[in-house]
Design a binder for these strands. Structure first.
Length: 553
RNA sequence: UGGGAUAUCGCCAAGCGGUAAGGCACCGGGUUUUGAUCUCGGCAUUCAGAGGUUCAAAUCCUCUUAUCCCAGCCA
């Protein structure tokens, strides 16, 4: 029997299971909290699949989509739209409306006032430089700010005036009063609010003070009734602060923060800041460049959402630092496309073949399966004619027995058509092959030669009289080193061949190939029409991933 | 030399005191009008290291080692 493919267990599911069993929670509630300061990438996909996956698997569970938008100078409404689209495309549904941390600015402000009144927070006028000095170092304790013990009434007044816009950016800030000698740097009177006279994409110019992440995130979680707040390892040190804030304000909900390790992928950058830089330096064209590890880049490249979900399932969730091999992601993509991609023939590097014993004025409509193993996908017709194109790599004037393609004087099977034999080669002055003259065996359509001749090789082809010209974009990893994030100079490790453009032909049936729809161009790989540059007048195909190649030649 | 974390096959990763799952990769055999797919088989006497507890340890205890994170008014 087919096993229902349940998500593999992981330490977070174990925690949830015991929380449910102990009665701590009846239902669980997670959230995916991106900051709208860039596009989502494969690393975010891991978090999305985790958080939304939990909500799908546990009874009545929910997952919110919340934009963590507390830093207006880095954020933009365009990113909000792109993120929303990517999450939906990945196949997930968030609970209710989209949330924004900025929805809670008023409540956040009130909680800040509460902390001040409890003498748990104070307005500090140290500048950035001084703040850093007072914080101390990893080895040495920090010093108390001279403003630390100002009366709460004074802080209350100052905080109100910060909000009113009376002070310049950087001149004042609200800080939690915790412990400047804490061995955990995050607990050394962390900044709660800073002044920013910046237009916010959601709240406009209503505010000139903005809450910091550590103050905002835990409260937003609590206000939304989040039970399990999942984040990456670098926030482990923030957890005491997360708990401190919720312990010191009047709020009942106490979500539990659990950290897991972020995904690192060979040959790729998974840092929004660094991806931003690639765009600014025009190394790639945009966030959705098919060479990008962004959700939109992978979509444009042809990666199915289901393949990305499967990948996230396979890599698991742990606290171990990890770097996943690219082959693992590609295996998921191939597995999906192998099953779902209609087959077609495309010649990427064409050379003309003339079948001398085939009638000059004749063409035939040959029937070919859309998928060799899935009859439900039907058949298609491909036009055969006296002149066809094959790939240059599929012909050699001489070759050893390992070469299973067309060789001068030998036979090869044309996929879905006849067996042909290469009789003669025509070259130009430069020695470049311009034509290969062949003869075909009319008895070999749909069956092997009756005289027992063994024809090993099969090559693909496209009619030279009925076809569609097409551009093919062949992609490779953007970087030549496994860990580009560790490179001292990113320019030195850039793969100059990350994009190679070829021009050739596809079956005429592909003239209306919809963008992003995956095809397998037999013996070449999986391709889809580009969602920006392809049109019926000018077909442009992106190679999603090559076929597995155990030959290597 | 402060604090927080992590160490199971090349890469991920189960395992939670009873004698090392699985996936990817790799290496063979078979099928094949895609050098694809599919299929069959191989792939950790060992769990960072050293001690200890136990009839029994990857799992418990000690110490050691390695790696990652933290000194933004970023998230």
């Amino acid at each position: 029997m087919t096993q229902v493919d349940t998500a593999p267990s992981n330490f977070i599911r174990n925690i949830i299971d015991s929380d449910l069993q102990s009665g701590k929670h009846q239902v669980i509630h997670t959230r995916f909290p991106p900051e709208p300061n860039g596009y989502l990438h494969i690393g975010h996909a891991k978090s999305i699949c985790l958080n939304f996956g939990l909500a799908e698997d546990y009874p009545n569970a929910l997952c919110n989509l919340r934009f963590d938008d507390t830093n207006p100078v880095k954020e933009d409404a365009d990113y909000v739209a792109a993120i929303e689209k990517d999450v939906r495309w990945l196949g997930f549904k968030w609970a209710g409306d989209i949330h924004y941390s900025s929805d809670y600015f008023e409540q956040l402000y009130d909680f800040a006032v509460e902390l001040i009144k409890k003498d748990k927070a104070y307005v500090c006028a140290l500048d950035a430089q001084q703040t850093r000095e007072y914080r101390g170092s990893l080895m040495t304790a920090g010093k108390d700010s001279p403003f630390r013990n100002r009366p709460t009434s004074e802080s209350l007044d100052l905080f109100a005036r910060m909000r009113a816009g009376e002070f310049a950016e950087g001149s004042m800030m609200l800080r939690a009063k915790i412990d400047m000698a804490s061995p955990n740097m995050k607990m050394r009177d962390p900044v709660l609010y800073r002044i920013r006279f910046a237009h916010h994409h959601q709240t406009g110019d209503k505010w000139c003070i903005y809450p910091m992440y550590d103050f905002t995130h835990c409260i937003s979680d609590a206000l939304e009734g989040i039970t399990h707040s999942l984040c990456t390892l670098e926030f482990e040190d923030h957890r005491p602060l997360y708990d401190w804030v919720l312990a010191n304000i009047s709020i009942a909900c106490k979500p539990r923060q659990i950290e897991f390790s972020r995904l690192n992928l060979q040959y790729t950058l998974t840092s929004k800041r660094k991806l931003h830089a690639l765009i600014e330096e025009e190394i790639i064209s945009a966030w959705d460049d098919p060479r990008m590890p962004t959700i939109s880049g992978m979509r444009r490249r042809g990666y199915p959402a289901a393949a990305i979900r499967e990948f996230c399932k396979r890599i698991g969730v742990t606290k171990q630092e990890n770097t996943v091999e690219l082959a693992s992601l590609e295996a998921c993509v191939r597995e999906n496309l192998e099953a779902h991609g209609p087959r077609a023939m495309a010649v990427l590097d064409p050379v003309k073949v003339i079948i001398s014993n085939y009638d000059e004025n004749k063409t035939e409509k040959l029937i070919a399966a859309v998928h060799p193993k899935d009859e439900s996908m039907g058949t298609r017709t491909v036009t055969f004619s006296r002149e066809i194109f094959i790939d240059r790599a599929d012909f050699r004037e001489e070759a050893n027995k390992k070469y299973k393609r067309l060789v001068l004087g030998k036979e090869v099977r044309l996929r879905n058509a006849y067996v042909i034999k290469a009789d003669q080669v025509i070259k130009d002055d430069a020695g470049e092959i311009t034509e290969i003259h062949c003869s075909y065996d009319p008895e070999t359509l749909g069956n092997n030669p009756t005289d027992g001749r063994k024809v090993k090789g099969v090559i693909h082809w496209v009619s030279a009289v009925e076809n569609q010209a097409a551009e093919f974009r062949i992609y490779e990893p953007l970087f030549m080193v496994e860990n580009p994030a560790g490179a001292e100079n990113i320019h030195e490790v850039l793969n100059q061949n990350a994009l190679v453009v070829k021009h050739g032909f596809v079956e005429s049936g592909l003239s209306d190939a919809p963008a992003e729809k995956a095809y397998q161009f037999e013996r070449e790989g999986y391709f889809c029409a580009d969602n920006k540059d392809s049109s019926p007048e000018r077909l442009v195909f992106n190679r999603t991933v090559a076929l597995r190649d155990s030959w290597g030649g």
